[in-house]
């Protein structure tokens, strides 16, 4: 296990170095231009990106992440990263916990329920849930809050803004969690329902085991891997729409900073943020892989 983790960590470092170079290249490509006669080619930009990314890596290893420009002067990237990282992680983890609990539990419930109408409705609604663009959901929720305020003169929640209270948290967490909930529920339902029809479940019942024991020990342990995969996909998805959610709700996290960096063409902002994004995603994947191996002993033998 230790060997596996250290191998993966080594790969992560390589990927991060590549991101460092690629993002440098992308941002520099965007900034070339102006003089068409002196237009640098993609290769020339690449060599410039190589120099710059090496310089950045060297500095970053020594703890110097550089500065970025704002209307109020130059600020430290390190402070920005720390502040926005915690802001984003708060949202993401809350959304992940809620979507994990709600999605998986509902999925299990639906798969085991005896009412035929429920699975059908759930399958239909989860398709809708998976297909709603996050910005559309955010827009609808915001419009609802505004509508409610106009009609009843009462503010249910904040329409946008940053804050660690329910007023500010509910809407962004809801939007971030909406699709993962639908996805997890759907996956859990489909996988568990199929598992419940397997021969070994029938065998377990015929041994005289109780339903609770069969479900907990035989069924759930077997569906753990696909559900964990779904959790991974949800995590990717939440990270992916983070910029949109933060933009819609003016949440000063990694995603919004990223957008600001890209729009203002500040490489010193975009590169560290991209690395943090990459790191978050890769470490999440690593965690999942470790969990796979803990859950499913069959995977442990495979190097």
């Amino acid at each position: 296990m230790l060997r596996f983790v250290s191998q993966r960590l080594f790969l992560i470092v390589i990927v991060l170095l590549t991101i460092n170079f690629a993002v440098h290249w992308g941002m520099l490509m965007n900034q070339r231009g102006g003089d068409p006669e002196n237009f640098p080619s993609a290769w020339e930009v690449a060599s410039e990106a190589l120099t710059q990314s090496r310089a950045f890596a060297g500095k970053a290893l020594r703890g110097d992440l550089g500065t970025y420009e704002t209307n109020f002067g130059e600020l430290q990237v390190r402070d920005m990263l720390r502040q926005s990282f915690f802001a984003s992680m708060g949202l993401l983890l809350l959304a992940a916990i809620i979507s994990g609990l709600v999605g998986i539990l509902l999925g299990i419930f639906v798969a085991l329920t005896r009412f035929r109408a429920i699975p059908f409705t759930v399958l239909a609604t989860t398709i809708v849930g998976i297909s709603v663009p996050s910005f559309f959901a955010a827009m609808l929720l915001q419009q609802f809050i505004i509508f409610y305020f106009r009609e009843y003169d009462r503010r249910l929640l904040s329409v946008a803004g940053f804050g660690w209270d329910y007023q500010h948290l509910v809407l962004p967490v809801l939007v971030l969690a909406a699709r993962p909930i639908a996805y997890l529920m759907r996956t859990t339902y489909i996988v568990l329902q199929r598992t419940m029809q397997e021969d070994y479940i029938r065998t377990a019942y015929s041994k005289g085991l109780g339903r609770r024991y069969v479900v907990n020990v035989h069924a759930l342990r077997n569906v753990a891997v696909p559900i964990l995969t779904a959790v991974g996909v949800s995590w990717r998805f939440s990270l992916g729409i983070l910029p949109v959610v933060e933009y819609m709700f003016a949440w000063h996290g990694l995603g919004l900073r990223m957008l600001q960096g890209i729009q203002s063409g500040q490489i010193s902002m975009v590169v560290p943020l991209a690395l943090v994004f990459g790191l978050t995603l890769l470490l999440g994947n690593l965690l999942l892989d470790v969990l796979y191996r803990l859950v499913d002993p069959r995977l442990r033998e495979v190097p």
Binding site: M27, P243, I262, L282
Partner: peptide, 15 residues
């Protein structure tokens, strides 16, 4: 796959 596609897409499109 190490970056969300929204972000890598934006950077690449601008590039």
């Amino acid at each position: 796959t190490s970056l969300p596609m929204l972000i890598s897409g934006m950077i690449l499109i601008f590039a």
